[in-house]
Design a protein around this nucleic acid. Structure first.
Length: 586
DNA sequence: TTAGGGTTAG
């Protein structure tokens, strides 16, 4: 068996080695593990790998695990995935599994090659995982965006006999930050203080600032920053980012002016801060004056336009990026695709698609998901499907984008079918967005009420997702469509959204769709009590239209009068003209 | 203590 495996190793290696060999020349004169390890650690990497494989082929077992660790590191770093997997087989066969460091090294390889499940399996098989084994897996999950899995594992670590260290806490804090779980983040902070890890480790401090900032606690972020014994550029950037994120522009600028050596990230944070408060002029000013702007600097402004629903401006800015010679990255493309999706201009979307193909970015998850989204928003479901099914790796965002595509185009059968397929996926599970899309399908198409309710219950009970107001709105729309307005009203109360204007607004929309004047009057009255009516023409328009439908003209003119008095008037319909310039730029 | 683990922008 070993001979067979090793032969494959040799074949694999030689097929890649020959071309480089003539340039590098052989540096290995005598084959022994000592010389091989020295070579692996220094130079002549390819030759050293070759020599190592020859030793394995000859049945020459390494004295200890360290040679195999070196071998794994070097082969992993050079992309010899198949060799690494075969080395794992060798490790299993020759009983090296109990060597914790060696297993950690294998875990590193599996993490590097995006095989977290293999890393976890290996971890489970380790007789004595140490703190590095735990940290490696926790950080693997966190870096892969599987924050909940990472946190669960971190909590398991806490319950184990292994003592967590600084590294364990930094990964856990990053997960809390991304999930916005301030309570757990603060608990971890107190644990860090108790263990005396807060001082003397700048990275821990940086993670704390980031966690507080992302969880909306500006005070927490500033407090940590002020108490840090040592600060590096990341600390300063993290505090400026916290200010930007929490709308504290002036405080952010104050920190910026104190900062010894601002770098590109710092300037980008400032651009972001200005863009977030709508001050695009200042953002431009920083962009034109900053020392080393990169694609992120431009992308930040581009994102600002998209987030403030200025899609046309976003596309114009994108052409400006192109003419300024900015190198587009996957984010530039995905952001501009969002703008194009909002404008629903298919030719521009196709142009960006070609651009992505040309740059070799079309299979990146952010770009592919944005393309799916753009095509489905433009009504081109077949194109969206093609993108989805040809993606080499589909993450949840891609699945959600495709389900949303069906939802938007009213194809409930396909949306539900795809959702059922997603449920079968081993390493993905539906999230709140998935269910939002699914419930939207149910509320727009004629999906049986039992099925709709079933999905809602599945979300809460099976997947433990707390319903947000948007989920309840979809459920209410579905109920209202069947004339069950009063049951829909019960949903608002039952899930504690009685004081949420958005929920009542949705219910009013549902009453309007069902032409139910009596129910609409009750809902509008509730909205008046909640103060949701002032400066919002929606309630007036809905009520006026409903009264008109029921030919109650006296009430219609009364509402129009109130609207005139309050200065709330129906928005004038707007249209857009395609800027031909955009297409001309490419 | 040369081998394995951590932080900031979208």
């Amino acid at each position: 068996m070993l001979r067979y495996v090793s032969n494959k190793v040799t074949v694999f290696l030689t097929s890649r080695v020959y071309s480089t060999r003539s340039h590098v020349g052989s540096t290995i004169s005598s084959n022994s593990w000592t010389t091989v390890v020295t070579a692996l650690a220094q130079s002549g990497v390819i030759d050293a790998l070759h020599a190592a494989v020859e030793l394995l082929n000859d049945g020459d077992k390494p004295d200890d695990a360290s040679a195999l660790i070196h071998l794994l590191r070097v082969s992993g770093n050079n992309g010899y995935v198949s060799l690494c997997r075969q080395l794992h087989g060798y490790v299993l066969k020759h009983g090296y599994v109990s060597k914790t460091r060696l297993s950690n090294s294998l875990m590193r390889f599996y993490k590097m090659s995006d095989s977290l499940e293999d890393a976890h399996k290996l971890f489970d098989e380790m007789p004595e995982p140490d703190v590095i084994s735990w940290n490696s897996l926790v950080s693997g999950y966190v870096q892969a965006g599987r924050y909940q899995d990472g946190l669960c594992l971190f909590l398991d670590l806490h319950r184990s006999d292994v003592v967590p260290n600084e590294f364990s806490f930094t990964s856990a804090l990053a997960a809390c930050a991304r999930l916005g779980i301030l309570l757990l983040g603060a608990c971890i902070h107190s644990k860090i203080v108790k263990l005396g890890m807060e001082r003397g480790n700048v990275v821990v401090g940086n993670c704390l600032i980031d966690m507080y900032g992302k969880c909306g606690s500006m005070d927490g972020a500033v407090l940590v920053f002020q108490h840090m014994e040592e600060r590096d550029t990341v600390s300063w950037n993290a505090i400026v980012a916290s200010c930007s994120r929490n709308g504290e522009l002036e405080l952010g600028l104050w920190f910026f002016h104190q900062m010894p050596n601002p770098d590109t990230v710092t300037y980008n944070e400032l651009i972001d801060a200005f863009v977030k408060c709508g001050d695009f002029d200042s953002a431009f000013q920083i962009l034109s004056c900053m020392p080393n702007p990169n694609s992120s600097s431009w992308n930040t402004i581009l994102t600002g336009y998209v987030n403030s629903e200025q899609s046309s401006e976003a596309t114009l800015f994108f052409t400006q990026m192109h003419s300024s010679g900015v190198r587009f990255d996957e984010y530039s493309l995905s952001i501009v695709l969002a703008a194009i999706a909002a404008l629903a201009v298919v030719p521009w979307g196709s142009l960006i698609h070609s651009c992505a193909l040309k740059l070799g970015l079309d299979s990146r998850v952010v770009v592919a998901s944005a393309l799916i989204d753009m095509y489905s928003k433009c009504g081109m479901l077949k194109q969206a499907e093609l993108m989805f099914w040809t993606m080499p790796r589909k993450n949840l965002i891609a699945w959600n984008a495709m389900i949303y595509g069906y939802a938007r185009n009213g194809d409930s059968t396909q949306a539900i079918k795809l959702f059922n397929q997603l449920k079968q996926e081993r390493f993905l599970k539906p999230d709140g967005i998935t269910f939002l899309n699914l419930l939207a399908v149910c509320s727009h198409c004629e999906v049986p009420m039992e099925l709709t309710l079933g999905y809602f219950e599945m979300m809460v009970n099976e997947y433990g997702i707390k319903p947000r107001v948007e989920h309840c709105c979809s459920l209410m729309r579905a109920m209202a469509q069947r004339g069950e307005i009063w049951q829909a009203k019960r949903v608002i109360q039952e899930f504690g959204f009685g004081f949420d204007g958005v929920a009542w607004r949705a219910l009013l929309g549902a009453c309007s769709a069902g032409k139910d004047l009596k129910a609409a009057k009750a809902v509008a009255a509730k909205m008046v009590v909640l103060g949701e009516v002032d400066e919002d023409e929606y309630v007036y328009i809905v009520m006026s239209n409903l009264y008109a439908y029921h030919e109650r003209w006296r009430e219609v003119s009364q509402i129009r009068k109130i609207m005139r008095e309050k200065g709330v008037e129906k928005e004038v319909g707007s249209s857009w003209i395609q800027e031909q310039n955009f297409a001309m730029q490419f």
